Amino acid sequence: METYSFLREFADSWMLLLLFCIFVGIWFWVARPGSNKLHDEAKTMIFRNDERPAPQEEAQK
């Protein structure tokens, strides 16, 4: 039972702090200056090779 109490206390305190710090670090990594170019490329990636509409036969499928 002592192991459970130790792990429960560790998870409620230090692990929660560690996971929160990781979350904040990832958020800052995504929102860092200079990352807009990467985000713009990712959001338009699906349209990269879209030069013309699909033929009528493929559009009806």
Rank of each mutant, 00 (worst) to 15 (best):
G25H: 03
R32T: 01
V24W: 10
F10M: 15
R32G: 07
E41W: 10
G25K: 12
A11R: 11
G34W: 02
I46C: 03
E41Q: 05
E41H: 00
S13Q: 11
W29K: 12
A31Y: 04
W27P: 00
S35A: 06
W29D: 07
G25E: 01
K43N: 12
A31I: 05
C21I: 11
R8K: 13
I46Y: 14
E41M: 04
L16S: 14
D12L: 07
F10L: 06
W27N: 08
L19K: 01
F28T: 00
M15F: 04
N36A: 09
L18G: 03
P33A: 10
P33E: 15
A42R: 07
L38H: 09
I26W: 03
M45A: 14
N36K: 02
E41V: 00
F20I: 05
A11S: 08
L16R: 04
W27C: 02
S35L: 13
I46P: 07
W29S: 08
F10G: 00
R8W: 04
G25Q: 04
W14S: 01
A11V: 02
F23I: 00
K37T: 11
F28A: 03
A42E: 15
E41L: 11
W27H: 15
E9I: 06
S13R: 10
V30R: 11
K37Q: 10
L18A: 12
R8H: 04
K43V: 11
D40E: 10
P33G: 01
I22Q: 07
F20K: 07
F20M: 11
R32E: 11
S35K: 14
F10V: 12
D12I: 00
R8L: 12
I26T: 05
L16Q: 01
F23P: 03
K37P: 04
T44D: 05
D40P: 00
I26L: 02
R8N: 07
T44K: 13
F23Y: 10
E41Y: 05
P33T: 12
K43Y: 06
S13I: 11
R32I: 09
E41K: 09
W14I: 12
I22Y: 08
A42M: 07
A11N: 12
W29Y: 15
F28Q: 12
D12Y: 03
G34D: 03
D12F: 14
F10I: 13
D40S: 12
K43C: 02
D40W: 04
L16I: 10
L38I: 10
G25F: 11
W27G: 10
I26E: 01
L16P: 02
L18D: 01
I46R: 13
F10S: 11
L17T: 00
A42S: 06
H39P: 13
R32F: 02
T44W: 03
S13H: 05
W27A: 10
S13T: 10
F28I: 10
K43D: 02
H39S: 05
